[in-house]
Protein backbone atom coordinates (compact mmCIF):
# COMPACT_ATOMS: atom_id res chain seq x y z
CA UNK A 1 0.00 0.00 0.00
CA UNK A 2 1.35 3.37 -0.97
CA UNK A 3 1.74 5.70 1.97
CA UNK A 4 -0.30 8.85 2.06
CA UNK A 5 1.15 12.24 2.58
CA UNK A 6 -0.26 13.60 5.82
CA UNK A 7 1.27 17.05 5.88
CA UNK A 8 3.09 18.98 3.22
CA UNK A 9 4.49 22.40 3.95
CA UNK A 10 6.60 24.56 1.68
CA UNK A 11 8.70 27.63 2.29
CA UNK A 12 7.15 28.40 5.65
CA UNK A 13 7.80 31.67 7.35
CA UNK A 14 6.23 32.94 10.53
CA UNK A 15 6.61 36.39 11.90
CA UNK A 16 5.20 37.16 15.37
CA UNK A 17 3.18 40.35 15.80
CA UNK A 18 6.15 42.03 17.50
CA UNK A 19 8.29 41.42 14.43
CA UNK A 20 10.29 38.45 15.72
CA UNK A 21 10.82 35.86 13.04
CA UNK A 22 9.86 32.49 14.50
CA UNK A 23 10.93 30.42 11.48
CA UNK A 24 11.71 31.00 7.83
CA UNK A 25 12.45 28.94 4.74
CA UNK A 26 11.22 25.69 6.23
CA UNK A 27 9.94 22.78 4.16
CA UNK A 28 8.31 19.89 5.90
CA UNK A 29 6.77 16.62 4.82
CA UNK A 30 5.10 13.95 6.86
CA UNK A 31 3.97 10.57 5.64
CA UNK A 32 1.34 8.42 7.23
CA UNK A 33 2.77 6.06 9.87
CA UNK A 34 6.04 7.95 10.32
CA UNK A 35 7.83 8.86 13.54
CA UNK A 36 9.58 12.17 13.13
CA UNK A 37 11.48 14.45 15.51
CA UNK A 38 12.02 18.18 15.13
CA UNK A 39 15.20 19.13 16.95
CA UNK A 40 16.91 22.43 17.57
CA UNK A 41 18.17 24.62 20.42
CA UNK A 42 15.96 26.94 22.48
CA UNK A 43 14.30 29.59 20.38
CA UNK A 44 15.02 27.76 17.11
CA UNK A 45 11.36 27.75 16.14
CA UNK A 46 10.30 24.21 17.04
CA UNK A 47 7.14 25.28 18.78
CA UNK A 48 6.32 27.76 16.07
CA UNK A 49 6.67 25.11 13.38
CA UNK A 50 4.60 22.60 15.33
CA UNK A 51 1.78 25.08 15.84
CA UNK A 52 1.73 25.75 12.10
CA UNK A 53 1.69 22.02 11.40
CA UNK A 54 -1.19 21.68 13.82
CA UNK A 55 -3.12 24.38 12.02
CA UNK A 56 -3.23 26.60 15.10
CA UNK A 57 -1.42 29.48 13.47
CA UNK A 58 -1.28 30.46 9.82
CA UNK A 59 2.16 30.88 8.25
CA UNK A 60 3.03 34.41 7.18
CA UNK A 61 4.48 32.98 3.97
CA UNK A 62 4.33 29.57 2.38
CA UNK A 63 1.58 27.00 2.74
CA UNK A 64 0.56 23.85 4.62
CA UNK A 65 -1.55 21.15 3.06
CA UNK A 66 -3.22 18.48 5.18
CA UNK A 67 -4.01 15.00 3.88
CA UNK A 68 -3.34 16.11 0.35
CA UNK A 69 -6.34 18.43 0.33
CA UNK A 70 -6.26 21.96 -0.95
CA UNK A 71 -8.28 23.11 2.03
CA UNK A 72 -9.48 21.23 5.03
CA UNK A 73 -12.50 21.62 7.24
CA UNK A 74 -11.47 22.82 10.73
CA UNK A 75 -13.55 20.16 12.37
CA UNK A 76 -11.95 17.38 10.37
CA UNK A 77 -8.48 18.75 11.09
CA UNK A 78 -9.12 18.83 14.81
CA UNK A 79 -10.44 15.30 14.80
CA UNK A 80 -7.52 13.88 12.88
CA UNK A 81 -4.56 15.92 14.14
CA UNK A 82 -3.92 16.22 17.89
CA UNK A 83 -1.41 18.77 19.12
CA UNK A 84 0.01 19.12 22.60
CA UNK A 85 1.41 22.57 23.33
CA UNK A 86 4.69 22.95 25.15
CA UNK A 87 3.40 24.55 28.34
CA UNK A 88 1.01 22.20 30.16
CA UNK A 89 -0.39 25.17 32.07
CA UNK A 90 -1.89 26.36 28.82
CA UNK A 91 -3.27 22.96 27.96
CA UNK A 92 -4.92 22.37 31.31
CA UNK A 93 -7.43 25.17 31.62
CA UNK A 94 -10.32 23.27 33.17
CA UNK A 95 -11.21 23.13 36.87
CA UNK A 96 -10.26 19.46 37.17
CA UNK A 97 -8.00 17.05 35.32
CA UNK A 98 -10.98 14.88 34.43
CA UNK A 99 -12.67 17.78 32.69
CA UNK A 100 -9.50 18.53 30.81
CA UNK A 101 -9.43 14.98 29.55
CA UNK A 102 -13.05 15.18 28.48
CA UNK A 103 -12.86 18.65 26.96
CA UNK A 104 -11.64 17.56 23.53
CA UNK A 105 -13.95 14.57 23.11
CA UNK A 106 -16.91 16.66 24.26
CA UNK A 107 -16.13 19.43 21.76
CA UNK A 108 -15.90 16.87 18.98
CA UNK A 109 -19.04 15.18 20.24
CA UNK A 110 -17.58 11.76 20.74
CA UNK A 111 -20.00 9.26 22.26
CA UNK A 112 -19.88 9.29 26.05
CA UNK A 113 -19.41 5.51 26.28
CA UNK A 114 -16.50 5.60 23.90
CA UNK A 115 -14.91 8.41 25.86
CA UNK A 116 -15.33 6.55 29.14
CA UNK A 117 -13.42 3.62 27.70
CA UNK A 118 -10.64 5.89 26.49
CA UNK A 119 -10.53 7.68 29.84
CA UNK A 120 -10.09 4.38 31.64
CA UNK A 121 -7.20 3.41 29.39
CA UNK A 122 -5.46 6.76 29.52
CA UNK A 123 -5.66 7.22 33.25
CA UNK A 124 -4.34 3.70 33.70
CA UNK A 125 -1.48 4.22 31.30
CA UNK A 126 -0.42 7.62 32.56
CA UNK A 127 -1.10 6.88 36.20
CA UNK A 128 -3.64 9.67 36.42
CA UNK A 129 -6.31 7.93 38.50
CA UNK A 130 -5.37 9.75 41.69
CA UNK A 131 -5.38 13.15 40.06
CA UNK A 132 -8.58 12.99 38.06
CA UNK A 133 -10.65 15.09 40.44
CA UNK A 134 -7.87 17.48 41.33
CA UNK A 135 -7.48 20.96 39.93
CA UNK A 136 -4.55 20.85 37.47
CA UNK A 137 -2.68 23.72 39.09
CA UNK A 138 -2.16 21.62 42.19
CA UNK A 139 -0.12 19.05 40.22
CA UNK A 140 3.63 19.00 39.81
CA UNK A 141 5.14 19.91 36.45
CA UNK A 142 5.65 16.28 35.47
CA UNK A 143 2.13 15.30 36.48
CA UNK A 144 0.81 18.24 34.48
CA UNK A 145 2.73 17.06 31.45
CA UNK A 146 1.20 13.61 31.75
CA UNK A 147 -2.27 15.08 32.10
CA UNK A 148 -1.67 17.34 29.10
CA UNK A 149 -0.59 14.36 27.01
CA UNK A 150 -3.67 12.50 28.19
CA UNK A 151 -5.92 15.34 27.11
CA UNK A 152 -4.58 15.06 23.57
CA UNK A 153 -4.60 11.25 23.47
CA UNK A 154 -8.24 11.34 24.55
CA UNK A 155 -9.12 12.53 21.06
CA UNK A 156 -7.64 9.39 19.47
CA UNK A 157 -6.05 11.40 16.66
CA UNK A 158 -4.40 9.84 13.60
CA UNK A 159 -1.55 12.29 13.84
CA UNK A 160 0.04 13.33 17.13
CA UNK A 161 2.13 16.50 17.37
CA UNK A 162 3.88 16.73 20.73
CA UNK A 163 5.92 19.73 21.84
CA UNK A 164 8.68 18.55 24.20
CA UNK A 165 6.42 16.07 25.95
CA UNK A 166 9.06 14.60 28.27
CA UNK A 167 10.85 17.70 29.46
CA UNK A 168 9.63 17.38 33.05
CA UNK A 169 8.44 13.82 33.61
CA UNK A 170 10.50 11.35 35.60
CA UNK A 171 12.37 8.49 34.00
CA UNK A 172 9.73 5.86 34.71
CA UNK A 173 6.94 7.90 33.20
CA UNK A 174 9.14 8.84 30.26
CA UNK A 175 9.84 5.21 29.48
CA UNK A 176 6.22 4.16 29.67
CA UNK A 177 5.14 7.14 27.56
CA UNK A 178 7.72 6.27 24.90
CA UNK A 179 6.66 2.65 24.91
CA UNK A 180 3.04 3.64 24.54
CA UNK A 181 3.73 6.10 21.73
CA UNK A 182 5.64 3.41 19.85
CA UNK A 183 2.74 1.05 20.30
CA UNK A 184 0.34 3.69 18.97
CA UNK A 185 2.65 4.11 16.02
CA UNK A 186 2.56 0.39 15.29
CA UNK A 187 -1.22 0.74 15.23
CA UNK A 188 -0.84 3.37 12.54
CA UNK A 189 -0.67 6.67 14.42
CA UNK A 190 1.75 9.17 12.89
CA UNK A 191 3.93 10.91 15.46
CA UNK A 192 5.91 14.14 15.49
CA UNK A 193 7.81 15.24 18.60
CA UNK A 194 10.05 18.22 19.22
CA UNK A 195 13.13 18.01 21.42
CA UNK A 196 16.19 19.99 22.37
CA UNK A 197 17.47 17.14 24.55
CA UNK A 198 18.42 14.45 22.08
CA UNK A 199 18.49 11.40 24.36
CA UNK A 200 14.92 10.37 23.64
CA UNK A 201 15.06 11.05 19.92
CA UNK A 202 16.50 7.67 18.81
CA UNK A 203 13.88 5.88 20.91
CA UNK A 204 11.03 7.62 19.22
CA UNK A 205 11.94 8.83 15.76
CA UNK A 206 13.19 7.39 12.49
CA UNK A 207 13.58 10.72 10.79
CA UNK A 208 14.76 14.10 12.04
CA UNK A 209 14.40 17.73 11.04
CA UNK A 210 17.10 19.99 12.43
CA UNK A 211 15.85 23.51 12.85
CA UNK A 212 17.64 26.72 13.68
CA UNK A 213 15.15 29.35 12.61
CA UNK A 214 15.72 27.89 9.14
CA UNK A 215 15.68 24.26 8.19
CA UNK A 216 19.31 23.16 8.59
CA UNK A 217 19.11 19.47 7.81
CA UNK A 218 16.67 16.67 7.26
CA UNK A 219 17.52 12.98 7.27
CA UNK A 220 17.45 9.69 9.09
CA UNK A 221 17.90 9.82 12.84
CA UNK A 222 21.20 7.97 12.51
CA UNK A 223 22.71 10.27 9.93
CA UNK A 224 21.69 13.41 11.75
CA UNK A 225 22.54 12.46 15.31
CA UNK A 226 25.96 11.05 14.41
CA UNK A 227 26.96 14.24 12.64
CA UNK A 228 28.69 15.81 15.63
CA UNK A 229 29.83 18.85 13.70
CA UNK A 230 26.32 19.65 12.54
CA UNK A 231 24.89 19.31 16.04
CA UNK A 232 27.59 21.42 17.67
CA UNK A 233 27.34 24.15 15.05
CA UNK A 234 23.66 24.44 15.83
CA UNK A 235 23.85 24.64 19.57
CA UNK A 236 22.93 21.06 20.33
CA UNK A 237 24.71 18.66 22.64
CA UNK A 238 26.16 15.62 20.95
CA UNK A 239 24.62 12.62 22.73
CA UNK A 240 27.27 11.05 25.03
CA UNK A 241 26.96 7.64 23.40
CA UNK A 242 27.53 9.11 19.97
CA UNK A 243 30.54 11.03 21.22
CA UNK A 244 31.92 7.86 22.75
CA UNK A 245 31.33 5.88 19.58
CA UNK A 246 32.91 8.51 17.38
CA UNK A 247 36.00 8.80 19.56
CA UNK A 248 36.43 5.06 19.77
CA UNK A 249 36.05 4.91 16.01
CA UNK A 250 33.28 2.35 16.16
CA UNK A 251 31.70 2.00 12.77
CA UNK A 252 27.96 2.37 12.98
CA UNK A 253 28.04 4.62 16.01
CA UNK A 254 25.46 3.51 18.60
CA UNK A 255 22.45 5.70 19.35
CA UNK A 256 20.92 3.83 22.24
CA UNK A 257 22.36 1.97 25.19
CA UNK A 258 21.03 -1.33 23.85
CA UNK A 259 22.78 -0.73 20.59
CA UNK A 260 26.02 0.30 22.31
CA UNK A 261 26.05 -2.86 24.39
CA UNK A 262 25.56 -4.99 21.28
CA UNK A 263 28.31 -3.26 19.34
CA UNK A 264 30.81 -3.33 22.17
CA UNK A 265 30.11 -7.02 22.78
CA UNK A 266 30.71 -7.78 19.11
CA UNK A 267 33.85 -5.76 18.98
CA UNK A 268 35.50 -6.85 22.18
CA UNK A 269 34.02 -10.33 22.25
CA UNK A 270 32.58 -9.78 25.72
Amino acid sequence: MARDKVIEAKNLKYRYPDGTVGIEKVDFELWSGEKVAIIGPNGSGKSTLLEILGGLIEPTEGYVKFFGKESIDKYELRRRVGIMLQNPDDVLFNPTVREDLEFGPAQLQMEKEEFNKILEGISQLLDLKLYLNKPPFRLSKGEKQKAALGSVLALKPEVLLLDEPFSAVDIGAKQSMIKYLNRLNEDGVTIVVTAHDLTTVPLLADRVYLLNKRLIAEGSTRDTLTNAELLKNNGLEVPPLVELGLRLGINLVPLTVDEAVRRLRERFCL
Partner: peptide
Protein backbone atom coordinates in the same frame (compact mmCIF):
# COMPACT_ATOMS: atom_id res chain seq x y z
CA UNK B 1 -3.70 33.59 23.76
CA UNK B 2 -2.01 30.27 24.39
CA UNK B 3 -4.93 28.91 26.35
CA UNK B 4 -7.17 29.86 23.47
CA UNK B 5 -4.84 27.96 21.17
CA UNK B 6 -5.08 24.92 23.43
CA UNK B 7 -8.86 25.15 23.33
CA UNK B 8 -8.92 25.31 19.57
CA UNK B 9 -6.44 22.44 19.42
CA UNK B 10 -9.09 20.30 21.00
CA UNK B 11 -11.97 21.39 18.85
CA UNK B 12 -13.37 24.45 20.62
CA UNK B 13 -15.28 26.50 18.07
Amino acid sequence: ENVYKAMRARGYD
